[in-house]
Design a protein around this nucleic acid. Structure first.
Length: 274
DNA sequence: TTGTGTTTTATTGCCTCC
DNA sequence: GGAGGCAATAAAACACAA
C-alpha cells in the first residue's frame, strides 16, 4: 500500500516512527496521518525502566502508561491476523519492524486478538444453539397441539360412527364384529380400519370422513416453523445459517420412534411417547 | 466534569510441546 | 529447560450518560 509505505518504512529515516514520534520532541511535529494529537505528547509504554535503558529512551523519568496502537497499526495487524491467526517468529519480527513496534507487542496483540476472537465465537455459538433450541421448543409445542387436535377428531369420529351403527337396522340375531361397535381404539391411537375396507382395497384410509372437521394433509406445507440446521463443530460459516434450505418439512426432522404402520401393539403414542 | 462501564494493552502464572 | 500458547487479571484509555 503506497500510503502505508511511508508510514511503515523501516528505513532509518522513518523507522520506529511511532516510537520516535511518540517520545522524541524533535520529531513530534512529524505527526502521522492517523496519530491522535495526544500521542505526540506521550511516549510508548515499556514494560520496565530496564527496557527504556536498553532502548536508550530512558530519560530519568518513569516509563509512561501503556499506549494504544494507531488505527493504521491495528489495521495492518488485523489484516495479518485474517491471513493467519498464529504468529511465527519470522512474521512477528517482520510485522514489528513494519509497524515500529517491539516483537513482544506484536505477539501480545495477537494473543489478545485470539482471545477476543474466541469470545466472539463463543457468543455466536451460544446464539446459534439458543435459536435452535427455541425452534425445537416451538416445534414441540406445535406437535403437542396437533396431537391434541387429532385425538379430539378421532373421538368425534368414533362417536359419529357408533351413532351410525346403532341407527342402522341390523338383521335379527346377527352379532356385530367387535370393531364395528368399537371401531376406534382411542387409547392406542390407531387409525380405524373397517373390515370391508381392509378386505376391499388394502388401504388404511377410511371412507368415512367428517366433512365438518378440518382435514389435515400430509404435505410439506406444514405450519411448523423453520428448522435451523445444527452446524458441526468445525463449521465456521456462521454468517449464512440455513441458506441452503430455509423451509423444512417437519417430517424430515422428526422421525417417530414408532410409526403407525409399524406399531407392534405397544401402547405408544404417535411420536413414540407413552 | 465526573462517575461508570467497556475496550485495549500488558503482565503473570501455568501448561504443553519439542 | 526454553519457547510459545492460553486464562486470568490489572490498569490505562476510551466512551458516554447524567
Amino acid at each position: 500500500m503506497e500510503s502505508n509505505s511511508f508510514f511503515f518504512d523501516p528505513s532509518p529515516s522513518h523507522g520506529n516512527m511511532f516510537f520516535l514520534g511518540n517520545l522524541n520532541p524533535v520529531v513530534q511535529g512529524a505527526k502521522s496521518v492517523l496519530n491522535m494529537d495526544e500521542t505526540s505528547k506521550r511516549r510508548p509504554f515499556f514494560s520496565s525502566p530496564e527496557d527504556l535503558y536498553e532502548e536508550e529512551y530512558y530519560d530519568d523519568q518513569m516509563p509512561e502508561k501503556k499506549r494504544r496502537l494507531t488505527t493504521e497499526q491495528v489495521h495492518l495487524l488485523e489484516k495479518s491476523f485474517e491471513k493467519e491467526n498464529k504468529l511465527e517468529p519470522e512474521r512477528k519480527t517482520q510485522l514489528a519492524k513494519k509497524l515500529g513496534l517491539q516483537p513482544r507487542q506484536v505477539a501480545v496483540w495477537f494473543q489478545n486478538r485470539r482471545a477476543r476472537w474466541k469470545t466472539k465465537q463463543l457468543e455466536r455459538d451460544f446464539d446459534l444453539l439458543k435459536s435452535t433450541y427455541d425452534q425445537l421448543l416451538s416445534n414441540y409445542d406445535s406437535i403437542v397441539k396437533e396431537n391434541d387436535l387429532l385425538r379430539s377428531q378421532m373421538a368425534s369420529l368414533a362417536e359419529k360412527l357408533q351413532a351410525k351403527e346403532e341407527a342402522a337396522i341390523e338383521p335379527p340375531g346377527q352379532v356385530p364384529e367387535p370393531n364395528q361397535l368399537d371401531p376406534l381404539n382411542i387409547n392406542r391411537f390407531e387409525p380405524a380400519i373397517k373390515t370391508e375396507d381392509r378386505l376391499s382395497s388394502g388401504s388404511v384410509g377410511s371412507a368415512v370422513l367428517d366433512e365438518d372437521a378440518p382435514q389435515l394433509l400430509d404435505s410439506c406445507d406444514s405450519y411448523f416453523p423453520i428448522i435451523v440446521p445444527i452446524h458441526s463443530e468445525d463449521d465456521n460459516n456462521y454468517n449464512n445459517p440455513g441458506t441452503a434450505n430455509d423451509r423444512s418439512c417437519f417430517a424430515d426432522v422428526f422421525v417417530p420412534t414408532t410409526s403407525p404402520s409399524h406399531d407392534h401393539g405397544e401402547s405408544l403414542g404417535f411420536w413414540g411417547w407413552p
